[in-house]
Amino acid sequence: MTTVLLVHGGLWEEMDAERFWHRPGIVAGLQRHGVGVLAPDRLRRPRSWTAEAQHLAALLPEHPVTVVAGSNGCSAAVRLALAAPERVERLLLAWPATAGDPRVDTRTRLGLAQLGAEPDVLDALLNGGTLRGVTDDELASVAVPVGVLPSVPENPFHQRRTVDALLRLVPTAVALPGCPEPPHPAFPPHTEALVRTVAAFALA
């Protein structure tokens, strides 16, 4: 059976797999399509994206999986794919969080600092290229099939330019139909379409 590892969004905030994947019906939908699903919680307050990748790697089964990541979870998923390429068969980056926008980064940095993140942790979490915690050269080295799914409509935290940059940088990347991210109030009508997109990508 094909197995999908779902990596939820969020960054040091009140977000978990229940709210991001279970409650919107994505886990149950994928299971109806015959896909095995792992939907663990990410580290609550990681000090680095490497720590996130190590946490996820410890939860992987013995066989390779398709990793489906949302928002800031895309950074953790790419770090996992780079660290353990033999364990990641395919990679779907959904609603990738935009990095390098001064307004967004300033707001995010302030929010993390208020939660107690130290300066070195802030730098580790926010620095990078197109994605936080990952250089563009590293993105260009990803060799597994990659799908990129935009936030539609885009918003300041999930901008279309991030999707376009990923499609240019990652040699194997293909564009997938977009929708709002699951925690968004506008998401529910898109549940079944997203499930079909994810299942088709994982089973390809």
Results as ranks from 00 to 15, higher is better:
E14H: 15
E14I: 13
E14R: 15
D16P: 02
D16H: 05
A17Q: 06
A17P: 01
F20S: 05
H22C: 00
R23M: 02
P24H: 04
G25W: 01
V27K: 03
L30S: 04
H33Y: 14
P40A: 05
R45Q: 08
P46S: 06
S48N: 12
T50E: 05
Q54K: 14
A58T: 12
L60R: 09
H63G: 04
V65C: 06
A69V: 00
A69G: 04
G70P: 02
S75K: 11
A76N: 11
V78C: 14
A81T: 11
L82A: 07
L82T: 15
L82P: 11
A83N: 07
V88Y: 10
L91M: 07
L93F: 04
A94I: 08
W95L: 00
P96V: 10
A97H: 12
T98P: 03
V104S: 05
T106Q: 06
T106K: 08
T106E: 07
T108G: 05
R109L: 10
R109K: 14
L110K: 15
L110R: 13
G111D: 12
G111L: 11
Q114C: 06
L115G: 11
G116A: 10
G116L: 03
D120Y: 13
L122M: 08
A124N: 05
A124P: 10
L126I: 05
L126P: 09
G128A: 01
